[in-house]
Nucleic acid binder design. Structure first.
Lengths: 143, 143
DNA sequence: AGGGGAAATTGGAATTATTCTAATTTGGAG
DNA sequence: CTCCAAATTAGAATAATTCCAATTTCCCCT
């Protein structure tokens, strides 16, 4: 089974008119397409600039609205590094993020198979995690 | 050996005039004291309001300056939850943060003994991590 | 097909956290 | 005691994001 976020570079037309209960408007489609086409964790403003190329009348407010709609429906993920502006990621698999300080590029980092939060954190028992974000910064050694 | 951040509620006078190479001015002392006295992960503005009680002329800009100085000298940690304003934490032991969504309170969460990043993340080999932040949100079950 | 209405989009203003600036103050070194 | 770099201050500036009020879109009902 192939999920939407596994499709490499879908055109806006490839999306159904509704996704995860979210009405897929022209703008939402375009924004989703932007995010799926170049998976470099763009900021809202990056998305705005890219979306404008094919849809010159789109507004930044709409980009924010659409991103928020996509995020809250679990179609894309919001990614934060400290106080930097949020970035958006279409990879819905369990993963976290590493920012290479020499290039600024952000890489997805997966968890080792079978690991589980409770295996490495002293969580108060009964804790229900609704949201988890792991952000790493560093460099990739030349060795 | 007892470290500064293990002292429960030090008065500003308890600090040496220099700490980790950072000149301890009146204001920095006061701010450090605020952060150590009530370890509830206050925001810069919270710190400002508390510091004002004993030092009515302190400015918010100074609070930001001092916090940045304390953070960059490794005396306190900056803590972020998504796009919320930064919070400050005097616990220098290796730990991460859990925000209880029913109370808003933030709790320190330690790592299980002996666990190591590389044990649970598929890091590209040669990766040097300079900064790691793990932020959890959720609820503590009643059971 | 047509019309009503809720939801989405838009541009611009507003907000919020944080940083910057330039002027003043402070405090240690000589 | 004086000098000077560093720290503090108030207020302005910035940046990201949200809000607002006025359209516009487009689904549903007949």
């Amino acid at each position: 089974m192939i999920a939407l976020h596994d499709i490499k570079s879908p055109k806006p037309e490839d999306f159904p008119s509704e996704l995860e209960g979210l009405r897929m408007t022209k703008q939402r489609r375009e924004i989703l397409s932007v995010i799926l086409s170049k998976r470099d964790h763009p900021t809202a403003n990056d998305v705005f600039l890219r979306a404008q190329k094919r849809m010159p009348t789109i507004s930044l407010a709409t980009v924010y609205n659409c991103l928020e709609a996509l995020v809250s429906h679990g179609i894309v993920r919001q990614v934060n590094f400290e106080r930097e502006s949020s970035r958006y990621c279409p990879n819905l698999n369990d993963h976290c993020h590493f920012q290479d300080e020499s290039t600024g590029q952000i890489h997805d980092v997966t968890f080792k198979k079978g690991v589980n939060l409770a295996d490495f954190l002293e969580l108060p028992q009964g804790t229900e995690i609704s949201h988890l974000e792991i952000s790493l910064k560093g460099r990739i050694g030349s060795s």
